[in-house]
Amino acid sequence: MSCTQTANTTTDASCKSRSPLAEALLRLHKNRTALVGLIIVAVFAFLAIFGHWIAPHDPLEQSLYTKLKPPFWMPKAADGFLLGTDDFGRDLLSRIIYGARISMLVGVVSVSISLVIGTISGAIAGFYRGWVDILIMRVMDILLAIPSILLAIVIVAFLGPSLQNAMIAIGVVSIPRYARIVRGSVLEEYSKDYVQAARALGASDTRLIFLHILPNCLAPLIVQTTLGFASAILEAAALSFLGLGAQPPTPEWGAMLAGGRALILRAWWVVTFPGIMILLAVLGFNLLGDGLRDALDPRLRD
């Protein structure tokens, strides 16, 4: 035991000479799965931003002459439609490329909703404690008492089915995750000397929370945000698949799957490719989130 311990302590000691950022980057680099995640996420971000230049066709353009054409390697494939077409003769490749934009948008909007509301309510709960804390965390418990996809369905059912309402529902559903993280760190940091010192110097509550306390829970928040993108994309696709999110003819991956469901006997490609895109996008954010967790906060490692 003793010898290996020595070896470990020297390892740690030599690490300390690097800056925390360099150390985090180094660990991120060492973690190959995280790197794969980063590359996938980057590709999807690229598709989302520049999709209209890459896509060979208009995703909504219909044509009776090119209905249900198979992908290029199969007999009867049509020129110019690499991954084939759907039952309205729309180019599948173009549609899944445009789908990246919608899914990224869903991620950004719903994660922003839950991040902002979750952080503020968590900070308030942890900072003021007492009945405010009890009230806020009780509401969070209630939100957690129903499976998140069910809660999202119920919310959308009452708001009415649309992509916008799906994003709101998904945002609301994941508020508790952020609130819990922030409340935990605020409770932990609050008692520390530097916060009390800042308070003694007359810093206002808002200043204390945002400038002194919140930066300390940045690492878990970044990790949760990345993982939140993954679940938001997945849940939005599920809602759209159930007809409660994006409506046809929007080229949303889940909605495309719903449209292709009736075609599985004749055209497997219509349901296969959008699903692969969902899987890859979710996988990318999950890999990146796991990698960031290892890199930013070694304590959280599993």
């Binding site: 035991m1 003793s2 010898c3 290996t4 311990q5 020595t6």
Partner: peptide, 8 residues
């Protein structure tokens, strides 16, 4: 002292 190889 610790780390001198006793346990190993």
């Amino acid at each position: 002292e610790s780390g001198c190889g006793k346990s190993v």
